[in-house]
Write a protein that binds this DNA or RNA. Structure first.
Length: 733
DNA sequence: AACTGTAAACTTTTT
DNA sequence: GTTTACAGTT
């Protein structure tokens, strides 16, 4: 990246040199924020600050990894040794603290982290315990109310005290019950990681002192997306020395819906009276037209501090705005453009297609696949949401936490063991009566307390498998030397019966599932390798590794799946694109109802967040920006007319006019056109290998990568001339 | 208890 | 168009 070699601006320099006291860097998109943060850390290290005194918090693992790498390379040049600084996401930092001190707040350090599906299951149980039904009380809605509370540092008791109306009183009741289920299962949810850490720091002066003393320099990236609980955590650690440096941009705040509190960044000066504020408005990433487009758009937000965004780079190409007939045409046009740019030397890895909702990826993938253009969908979490993976992980989870009833329920009868609803109800009653976990209760199930002989045998078998696994993996010596994490994972998949279960049928689906299970084993191998290189000298028992592995799995994010080295176009949501940059960016689906999303249209605050989301998307582009929409779009099986996004009007500053034939970008070095393009003109009849004979509707001539629109029997197609291998049938004039 | 087929709900974004 | 939930059947 050239940002590394370029001399720093005065403002950047000032931020890098800042040492003591609170610092807020208001960093516009592409203003060299990462450079500033990494150089500042390097600077601190070089001036004698010990690596372990540094705490840098980010939002994704990928951002953490990049930051660590860049700091390392900066100090490599100065011949310094590998630092032991803490660079991690908020959530994994908190998880690690709770692994050390969790027993002081949640009574355990061997907790399991529940994902959304686990949370839903726990809420359903809570509703049942409260005698409420889940059709009146949607688990999803209840969960978001609880999540909101936790993000504001409101625990169940406080929530109950503050509840005045029927609705919040009911939520309070469910919240309490939900939390007690989590505690009973030795489990925490995502928000608990933060909430319980904040509690720990508040209640335990001893722990607070240790952390305060250790982390002399605290840094937080993407500060506009922190919530109140995160603010409290950082604040407590930094309260003594006040060496807190936060970096962010209010215009890029896109997580308010998840509890992010923009007043953290807006009120920074209020929170830290003597704080320094350094704005970085100069953009080093994008060419003039792109910066201008972004600035035009964001100016339509009223709730903002006006901040100048400018660039001294060349004007560059104007963004292209194209309307297509439907989403298939849209996808094909995007692929065409990718092919064209690839032809003139833009590598695929420097291209991205962004969209508002994940469901848009399907059509795009199809077109990319058909055209043979390599692509990756940034969906790191998708793999771990698969049924078979969740099942395998539940087996592993139950191995390290026998109280994890949610995991137990997911696998007790998968593969089917003849343990149905009746037996489970009976078991649950027994567990409740004795305050045991479900796995513990199995041992005490018998004919006398109402179980059938068959279910008693199946359950005993199940318990025996676990006993064996525990003996084999918990007696430390036996496994440290010989078995690896991957061996353990493989063994659990085999002996649980999952492998056999999915190999019985040869349906395509089950073959897939089996492959995914194999992939999980290799994921374990990868993790083990990574763990060893990152934790040199730490003796890792398989059990310890398993903890770390499961934690890692629980905290993966979509953007973690992006490998900058792969030579493929990246497809992802606008949210996942935060913090990234590409030469060529497409934003697809610029339609009212999609971007801005229909659920935000009637609320000014939400509308402004949609606008910021679009702004984030635009500012990911360095040189080329393509904005597309479809006049008709099929959603939920029905094709509907669409309306162009109001954002298009806002960013161009002109009423939106559909462009029919536009040369989106000038190509710098003109080459003589190839022989095909000389003969093929509008009206020509041509033959295509797959689509048959068609009539040329439109030709966009470019020195390389001319595109043609051809009407075939099967419909209109956009093709790149060189790739299509068209055969001329007749030329009409 | 396990399997099969049909109805209904679903999609905003994610650590 | 896809996934989940539940009712009905064996």
């Amino acid at each position: 990246m050239d940002s590394k070699s370029r001399a720093l601006t005065e403002a950047q320099q000032q931020a890098v040199q800042h040492r003591e006291g609170p610092l807020l860097v208001l960093a516009g998109p592409g203003s060299g924020k990462t450079t500033v943060v990494t150089q500042r850390i390097a600077q601190l290290l070089l001036s004698g600050v010990q690596p372990w005194q540094i705490l840098a918090l980010t939002f994704t693992n990928k951002a953490a990894k990049e930051m660590r790498g860049r700091v390392q390379s900066l100090i490599d040049e100065s011949g310094m040794r590998a630092p032991g600084m803490t660079v991690s996401t908020f959530h994994s930092f908190c998880a690690r603290l709770l692994r050390d001190w969790g027993d002081r707040v949640i009574g355990t350090t061997t907790f399991t982290i529940y994902d959304t599906a686990d949370q839903k299951s726990a809420v359903k149980q809570a509703l049942k315990a409260c005698g409420m039904n889940d059709s009146n009380w949607k688990p999803g809605a209840v969960l978001s109310a609880i999540s909101n509370a936790k993000n504001k540092l409101i625990d169940a008791d406080t929530f109950q005290q503050e509840a005045s109306d029927f609705y919040s009183k009911s939520i309070a009741k469910i919240y309490k019950s939900y939390d007690s289920i989590l505690r009973g299962n030795d489990a925490v949810d995502f928000d608990d990681l933060l909430l319980q850490t904040a509690k720990l720091l508040d209640q335990d002066g001893d722990v607070r002192k240790q952390l305060e003393d250790r982390f002399q320099y605290v840094m937080i990236d993407e500060y506009q997306d922190t919530n109140y609980t995160q603010f409290v955590i950082a604040n407590k650690i930094a309260s003594n020395h006040r060496n807190i440096c936060v970096v962010g941009d209010p215009d890029q705040s896109i997580y308010a819906w998840r509890g992010a509190d923009i007043s953290n960044i807006l009120d920074f000066e209020k929170h830290y009276g003597e704080g320094t504020v350094i704005p970085l408005g100069r953009n080093f990433r994008s060419t003039g037209h792109i910066v201008k487009t972004a600035a035009n758009l964001i100016e339509h937000n009223t709730q903002r501090k006006d901040k100048k965004l400018y660039t001294e780079l060349e004007e560059g190409h104007e963004p292209s705005i194209i309307s297509l007939d439907d989403e298939h045409e849209e996808a094909e046009s995007i692929v065409c453009e990718a092919l064209r740019l690839h032809n003139i030397g833009v590598p695929y890895k420097e291209m991205a297609v962004l969209y508002r909702v994940n469901s848009l990826s399907r059509v795009l993938e199809e077109s990319f696949r058909n055209a043979g253009v390599p692509y990756v969908v940034a969906r790191g979490t998708a793999f771990y949401e698969r049924k078979e993976i969740k099942q395998a992980l539940s087996y592993l989870r139950l191995l390290i936490n026998a109280k994890d009833d949610v995991a137990f329920l997911r696998i007790i009868n998968t593969p089917t063991r003849g343990i149905g609803a009746t037996s489970l109800n009976r078991l649950a009653a027994l567990a409740y009566e004795r305050s045991w976990s479900l796995l513990e209760s199995i041992t005490f199930a018998s004919k006398e307390n109402g179980f059938t002989a068959r279910s008693v045998t199946s359950m005993k078998n199940f318990a025996d498998i676990y006993r064996q696994w525990q003996v084999d993996s918990c007696s430390d010596e036996s496994l440290t030397a010989t078995a690896s994490l991957a061996d353990l994972v493989e063994r659990v998949i085999r002996e649980s019966g999952l492998e056999e279960f999915y190999s019985k049928s040869s349906s395509e689906e089950d073959v897939d599932r089996l492959q995914n299970l194999e992939e999980l084993v290799s994921a374990a191998t990868d993790f083990e390798d990574r763990f060893e290189t990152e934790n040199e000298g730490v003796v890792a028992t398989p059990l310890r590794l398993l903890f770390a592995f499961l934690e890692n799995v629980a905290l993966v994010s979509d953007s973690d799946a992006i490998d900058p080295e792969n030579g493929a176009v990246t497809l992802m949501t606008l949210h996942a694109s935060k913090g990234l940059e590409f030469d060529f960016v497409t934003i697809a689906g610029l339609e009212d109802g999609l971007l801005p999303h229909e659920r935000a249209v009637y609320d000014d605050t939400q509308m402004e967040e949609e606008r910021r989301l679009c702004y984030v998307g635009i500012t990911r582009a360095r040189t080329n920006l393509l904005l597309t929409n479809a006049r008709r779009r099929t959603q939920r099986g029905m094709s509907k007319r669409t309306i162009a996004s109001r954002f298009i009007r806002e960013m161009t500053g002109e009423p939106y006019i559909e462009q029919i034939t536009v040369d989106p970008w000038d190509v710098p070095d003109p080459d003589p056109a190839d022989s095909f393009s000389k003969e093929i003109t509008v009206g020509s009849l041509v033959r295509h290998k797959r689509f048959g004979v068609g009539k040329v509707q439109r030709v966009i001539r470019r020195p390389r990568g001319s595109t043609v629109t051809i009407k075939f029997k099967s419909g209109e197609k956009h093709l790149v001339l060189e790739y299509a291998k068209l055969e001329l049938v007749t030329t009409q004039f």
